[in-house]
Amino acid sequence: MSAFNAIGEEREIDREEFTPGIEPQPTWCPGCGDFGVLKSLKQALPEVGRTPEETLLVTGIGCSGKLNSYLDSYGFHTIHGRSLPVARAAKLANPGLEVIAAGGDGDGYGIGGNHFMHTARENHDMTYIVFNNEIFGLTKGQTSPTSPKGHKSKTQPSGSAKDPIRPLSLSLTSGASYIARTAAVNPNQAKEILKEAMEHDGFAHVDFLTQCPTWNKDAKQYVPYIDVQESDDYDFDVHDRQEAQEMMYETENVLKEGTVLTGRFYVDEDRPSYQEEKQAIGEMPEEPLAERYFDDDYEWERSYDLLDRHR
């Protein structure tokens, strides 16, 4: 008998279950791209059969971190840059949970960059949504890791001397097994991509372009967007690492010029998830570890049985 009966529950799920009954109105600025993430996530979760109580949404700090307040589920609003290590441990502790981590581009590609690299490398079975608005929003418009070279702000008065980070390429190099970019201006594609990301058995990274009309671009600047799977101008195989790499490189280059390329960039369905790898070498139990603490019949091992080496 499970102590966690929300996990694997089979029932009809209404997307409104994910809307908090009181204070459902987000505090994001009018026209903010973050609304697009919330909306598509609320649509995607019921479609993949996940309920609020089997979903753990772990966020970082920034406007994106408020996502927890507006999506009704188990939530852990952590600290700046650290959503991934909290999220992946929760997944190891209780693999039946649908674990989603989310944060901004500063959170994920700046302060939390090391965790992003290593979580992708380990290929945990979880979804990571990066709200990429190319700016620090909540702290009022400073240059971020994805801001274009030459971007002027109060902290970069002469314009940034740095090229922006390449989130898709970094993700691929690090080891993510599902990599996509979508945009708040394209909610239908976003929903489909989030569904795929959640259903993918491995680390799924979604770079989500979320316009920041207050401090950076407004929605118009992400339109028109091009879906690379639907456009005839782009022909590459998402399963081919090399072709994916070239496509990502171009995508990152042209964003500076205002061309918004979105879609799936890399999908590797063969790579085992971290849980599978760890179980294969006998370093992770088959039964969810969290269940053991509720199992009254479990015979807990004792250090007393390890003493032979000390005699």
Binding site: L56, V58, F76, T78, R82, L84, P85, V86, A87, R88, A89, A90, L92, A93, N94, L97, N114, H115, M117, H118, K278, E283, M284, P285, L289, A290, Y293
Partner: peptide
Amino acid sequence: GISEQVEDEIAAAALALGASHAGV
């Protein structure tokens, strides 16, 4: 049980937190 050698000590403490939050 599970032992994780991770990228840095920030992650290490954060993982312990995540696991404990989930009931381990």
